[in-house]
Write a protein that binds this DNA or RNA. Structure first.
Lengths: 355, 355
DNA sequence: CTGTTAGCGCTTTCAA
DNA sequence: TTGAAAGCGCTAACAG
């Protein structure tokens, strides 16, 4: 391809200034009726036995002039928007970004669009987000709740709206929820650390988040397997999930145990960064035999100088499960407030082979 | 907060089964007219001097029963959707995820929603995405194009639609474009590598992407500053931007130069991963004096064993610029097919202090 | 096979 | 201050 040529289709000067774009306009221009044109446009020409010549004429016209079906009007008429809303704490979080990408693909393949909204982990923001989506008449909604009490329950609205919760399984919700098997992941992660080093600490974000609590439970039961008493003393938790919290918790862990742990797990990559920072400040560099563990994954973990184990969620599988649950509801299949569990994956870096 | 209590507002049994949710329903239920109710709901009670008692009655009713304005109907009537469409090659790319998050915030603050769509770097997918958005009647569109020729130009449509391009400035476009100053970033990155190591190679994705070509131009002019002849021989490029390409290019570079370079830059983190993999396969581990450079940034770069320099784009600044450009168009301010440039940031890891 | 009609819920305009 | 009417572009139902 030549660089520098004019590359974007410019407003075609041969094309009439006011391009017909609505069904009515096409009908008027071709001399057929709304209905006939609509049948052709919606691919129902066969079904309604539109004369081939008529169909060709209309299709030809559209090929020349283009048409854009106004789905706003369609939505109003059908009381169905073919749109799905997504409410997330933070799109910049890679897990949510991957989840969004996966959901988007599924939606598009089904002719739906995705409306993304962030709550910024703020219940008021979450309520605003839900309202925005409801006003837009979304047919369904996927919520990764940041508050245990969703402010505006979509039930009882004029239009019904399918709802699926994800990522955080607050108990007692009337909606189905799709989550990773956090307890199993916590167990498997801790199992590896303990088998290798005999001891480990867990640096966790807010314990009142169900996902965190489940991960801790897995960690604790692995501790039990290795006969570690007072496993609770190995868990450090914070209110927030960010780099500063990771730093703080690592400092706490070091202080309370009189030195660096031989292995640790963080409940997220943000905490993990903070923990590494704290170690860097204290030791200058990472002690080579420190075994690193974290929830979440990033390819760069591969290249850290130490051995690393991570627990990664399977965003595509989660998205598929969410989507199936959503479409089940949209097709009026029975919906229970069930808990759908998706398996995660444990990953280790190649450095394990070096030793 | 107690775990285990019922936490989501359940469908309130005291509330009538069919909650009035439309203006008409509220009007009928309260005995006032559409117009009166609408004035109250839209906060124009003052302006139209609605009787205080009337207003209170209506507000009270709404507080009890709730209301959700149907923006689908509103859009149809106003020929304005208060929605912005976003077309990206890939939401899972952290740069685009951050950009999306930033744009979303700006949109929400302005009462707009964001429709996200991915093209998967495929021109046909891009065309489908644009159509989807047009059908939805978005007021504006932000496109990070994957093809130099946008398939369905939104101009000439029934409703006008503001357009801003970003990330890739294909020449000759009739739309304004917002990009990072890639050439400057390439220059600054290369300048650091060359000052430190006297030599470097550039592993780049498809050269026909304007952003890549600009980065290379910056790299080459830094080479010029250091009197390196045959700078072009230090540039290796591929068709795709992925891990495999990075691996391949690093192998090529090693082969063509008879050994590992002393420093290198990759045009993206994906390529960077591939390059590190290739080195790992060859050497087992990274030579300590190898200086690493890459476009894109991730916090984990901080903890790699080697010295690292990265060029990071300023997603928030880009989003602000895009949004201003968009709102300018929406307010019918003059729009030129101008090129708006945002500065990037150079980052180095703390390991620089160790040596 | 093709055309006509009514109406989705909102906003705007005009009347009372 | 409040009410009534028209119409955005589409779809469904029915009429020819």
């Amino acid at each position: 391809m030549e660089l520098g040529e004019t590359v974007v289709t410019p407003p075609d000067p041969n094309r009439p200034a006011s391009t017909p774009m609505t069904l009515d306009e096409v009908a008027a221009a071709t001399g057929f009726s709304r209905t006939t044109v609509r049948f052709v446009v919606n691919g129902q020409a066969e079904r309604y036995r539109i004369k081939a010549q008529t169909r060709d004429q209309i299709e030809q016209f559209i090929r020349e002039h283009g048409i854009v079906i106004d789905r706003t009007a369609r939505s109003l008429r059908l009381q169905r928007s073919d749109a799905i809303g997504l409410v997330l704490p933070d799109l910049a979080n890679p897990f949510f970004a991957h989840l969004t990408a996966a959901l988007e693909d599924l939606c598009h393949a089904a002719g739906l669009v995705l409306l993304t909204t962030s709550s910024h982990d703020d219940p008021a923001g979450e309520a605003r987000a839900v309202t925005r989506l409801l006003e837009r008449g979304v047919d369904g909604m996927v919520i990764a709740p940041c508050s245990p009490r969703i402010a505006l329950p979509p039930s009882g609205g004029r239009r019904s709206c399918a709802v699926v919760m994800t990522d955080r399984a607050f108990p007692g919700q009337p909606y189905p929820v799709v989550v990773t098997d956090n307890e199993a992941a916590g167990y498997r992660l801790a199992d590896i650390l303990l088998a290798e080093r005999g001891d480990a600490v867990f640096l966790a974000a807010s314990r009142w988040l169900p996902s965190i609590e489940e991960r801790i439970r897995g960690f604790l039961s692995a501790c039990g397997k290795y006969g570690l008493d007072d496993a609770e003393a190995r868990v450090f938790s914070s209110e927030s999930d960010d780099v500063a919290a990771g730093r703080r918790l690592m400092e706490q862990a070091i202080a309370s145990r009189g030195g660096l742990p031989r292995a640790f797990v963080c409940s997220s990559l943000l905490m993990f960064e903070g923990a590494l920072q704290a170690i860097g400040v204290r030791n200058g560099r990472l002690p080579p035999d420190l075994l690193l563990g974290t929830f979440d994954h990033h390819p760069l973990l591969e290249f850290l100088p130490n051995r690393v184990v991570s627990a990664r969620q399977d965003e595509k599988a989660i998205a598929r499960t969410i989507f199936r649950c959503l479409t089940d509801q949209l097709k009026n299949r029975p919906v229970h407030a069930e808990r759908l569990v998706v398996e995660g994956h444990i990953w280790r870096n190649g450095n394990l082979d070096d030793k």
